[in-house]
Amino acid sequence: MIIVLASRHDASARALVDGLAEHGEAALLTARDLSASGWRLRVPGGPETLVIDGHPEPVERVDGVVVRLAAVTEDELPDILPADRPYVAAEMNSFLQSWLAAIRCPVFNRPVGAYLCGPGWRPEQWTLWAWRLGIPAEPMTRSQLVEEDAQPRPTGALETVTVIGARCFGTPEVRLRQTAGQLAAAAGASLLAAHFRNGRFVAADSFPDLSSAELRAGLYAAVAA
């Protein structure tokens, strides 16, 4: 079974579950599922059980996890008393970080730090890493100083490469595919969207659009591999 961890509001995640279900068993997991009795995580030991659709399941039933949630927010917890939501959201985030880091199956992406889906790097980190890897990149500027002149905005269409495990999708250009793969490896991300303009790196994030059948098939194959 493939688990898609997402917001309860995320329609694209529900569509992803439906798409993955064409290849095999798939289920949606939201923060509300963490309020159903049956979760167990041990140290030492790791995850033992989870709860899907109200039913406790052994963790061995999970073949892979796709994370489409950056963090559990209070908005994800309508069944929790409002006064308790900040605490419960923080605890659930910590639980999911620990659970996803320890589960012994492919996870796209494993959490890094406080971010549930991959490295959670800010734009400046991606840009600096690109330069350090020898990848041409557009400079990144942000300023709160009113006297600084606004930088001219680069023009040109964005090209996006989606990295899923060891494979890249989205452009026939080999150099961009290799570059996206390099960045994903440097960040420790198995699922990544890398954006380019005029052959230069612009930005990256760990929430690629997975609405195409090709990408869903690629994701399923990566889990199976």
Binding site: E124, T127, L128, W131, A137, P139, M140, T141, R142, S143, Q144, L145, E148
Partner: peptide, 11 residues
């Protein structure tokens, strides 16, 4: 407080 940050090959 204000901050200005520019990143290319250096910070």
């Amino acid at each position: 407080s204000q901050i200005s940050l520019h990143v290319d090959r250096e910070v």
